[in-house]
């Protein structure tokens, strides 16, 4: 990788940062590599790590810096969040550094400190590992919810069937109670059945959806690799 490619890629990974913070970092590392000279350039790039790693470090430092400056957690997250989605780039500049529009800069509380630690931890995990981890959790949740709904459908049908059975024994004593149980039973069985069908439909489509999601992630990664 040449110096210019390295800087371009660094720029890409920092694109969610506020413009002047990003420019500042880019200028520093551009100058840094230029100082290393043609003969030292490759070694310096090697020691700096991949642009993605360097960018993760810069973003983590920026998040901590903003935290010390009293920026809100939301602002820090916006600034620090992995730069892969293109929605809503917000400034993570501490309020004390922005033009004071009447707002008082709150001192960061414990909650924000914990969040900052979390952000740093997340930043240290390679993005694809993180994506795999999140995908795993999503799959487990979907699976658990669907199993629960299946069980509910079976239970409703079973209760309906029991009510119908009980109603026949009740007809001997009071017709009203018998009719009530029969009615409940006849209503519950189809409700359970429809729930079963519904969950079954979701079940099939959920796996298809998850498969699509994974394909999407893989495609995105391939596109990125090709772009390199």
């Amino acid at each position: 990788m040449t110096m210019n490619e390295y800087i371009e890629e660094l720029k890409y990974h920092l694109r969610k940062m506020p413009d002047d913070d990003r420019e500042d970092a880019i200028e520093y590392y551009f100058e840094y590599l230029a100082e290393a000279g043609p003969e030292g350039e490759a070694a310096a790039i090697e020691r700096l790590g991949t642009p993605q790693q360097l960018a993760a470090g810069i973003r983590a430092d920026a998040a901590l810096e903003a935290l010390e400056g009293g920026a809100s957690t939301r602002q820090i997250q916006d600034c620090y969040r992995n730069a892969d989605d293109d929605v809503g780039a917000a400034s993570c500049r501490p309020p004390s550094m922005v033009a004071q529009h009447g707002g008082s800069a709150k001192a960061p509380g414990v909650g924000q400190g914990v969040k900052a630690v979390w952000l740093s931890v997340l930043g240290a995990i390679p993005r694809n590992v993180l994506a795999g981890f999140v995908a795993g959790i999503v799959i487990i949740i979907v699976f658990a919810v669907l199993i629960g709904l299946f069980a509910a459908a079976v239970a409703i049908m079973a209760v309906g069937a029991c009510a119908i059975g009980v109603s026949f024994t009740l007809f001997g004593e009071t017709v009203a109670a018998g009719l009530f149980y029969l009615g409940c039973g006849l209503a519950l069985v189809p409700i359970g059945w429809f729930l079963w069908r519904g969950v079954w439909w979701v079940w099939r489509h959920a796996w298809r959806g998850i498969a699509k999601m994974f394909n999407g992630i893989r495609r995105k990664r391939e596109v990125r690799r090709v772009a390199k």
Partner: peptide, 18 residues
């Protein structure tokens, strides 16, 4: 400047370039 300062410190301390 940054590069020179980094190299000076790296001469004595085990710090990364960033």
């Amino acid at each position: 400047y940054g590069y020179s300062l980094t190299q000076t410190l790296r001469g004595s301390l085990d710090i990364s370039e960033s």
